[in-house]
Design a protein around this nucleic acid. Structure first.
Lengths: 108, 108
DNA sequence: CTATTATGTAGCTCTTAGAGCTATAGAAAT
DNA sequence: ATTTCTATAGCTCTAAGAGCTACATAATAG
C-alpha cells in the first residue's frame, strides 16, 4: 500500500481488525503494532458539498426532519447544510460519510 | 410495541426497513406511513457520563488519539469528555451510542 | 372545496462544542 | 539514557448547532 486506499472495504477491515486484535489479545501482536494498525485502518473522512448532502438524503428517501433525527441534529441543521449556509465537520461529517458508504441503516 | 424498545435489534430493524421501503417502492405503502415508520425506527440517543465514555473506549482497547480519529474529533475533545470538562451531544453523542451498541468496527 | 399536515426556507439570537495551540509529566518501549 | 506515546492542563477563538418564529408550498384528508 502506498498512501491511503480510496474505498476501504469495511467488511474486510472489520475482519482484519477482529483478527489482529485477537492476535493482540493472545500476545502475538504488541501494543505499538496494534496502535498503528488501528490508525492505518481508519477511513478518510471527506467533506461533502451541499449538493452531495442533498443527493445523499434523497438517495435514502427521507425528509430533512427524518434525516436529521438519524444524525441526531436538528432539522434546521440539515437544511442549512443543503443550502450551504453551514458546513458540517467533525462528528457530523463522519456520520454523513458513514451514511454515504453504508446507507442509513448503518447508523440506525 | 408500546413505546420504544430498549435495545433495538438493528439487524431486524434493517431488514424491516428494507422490506417496508420495498413495499413503498411498489406502491403498497404510502409516503405518510413510510415517514412515520422511519421515525418510529430511530434508536434513542442516550447521553453518556464521563466514566461511561472512558469505559467504552477502554472496552474498545484504543487510546484517546485513536478513539478520536474514529469519531473524527480531536484528541483533546475525547480527553475533555472523559474528565467531564465537555459534554458530547448531537452528532458526537450519536457516534458514541453507535460504538456502544455495535463496536468501533461499525463506524470504521 | 376547504382544512389539515408536513415539508423546506428564512431570519434571527445564543450557547458551547470542538478546533487548535503549547506545555507538562508519566509510562512504556528501544 | 532517550525517544515515543499518552493523558492533562490551560488558554483563545471560530462557527456549528440549538432553539425559536414565521411563511410558502404541496400533498393529503375530510
Amino acid at each position: 500500500m502506498t498512501t491511503n486506499a480510496r474505498k476501504p472495504e469495511s467488511d474486510i477491515l472489520a475482519a482484519m481488525h477482529e483478527t489482529v486484535s485477537g492476535l493482540h489479545r493472545i500476545g502475538l501482536v504488541d501494543q505499538a503494532t496494534m496502535r498503528s494498525f488501528d490508525v492505518m485502518c481508519l477511513t478518510t473522512v471527506e467533506s461533502l458539498s451541499p449538493a452531495e448532502i442533498r443527493a445523499l438524503r434523497e438517495r435514502e428517501q427521507v425528509s430533512q426532519p427524518v434525516f436529521a433525527r438519524y444524525l441526531n441534529v436538528r432539522k434546521d441543521a440539515v437544511s442549512k447544510w443543503e443550502r450551504g449556509e453551514k458546513r458540517p465537520d467533525g462528528p457530523s461529517l463522519k456520520l454523513l460519510n458513514l451514511v454515504r458508504a453504508k446507507g442509513l441503516k448503518a447508523i440506525a
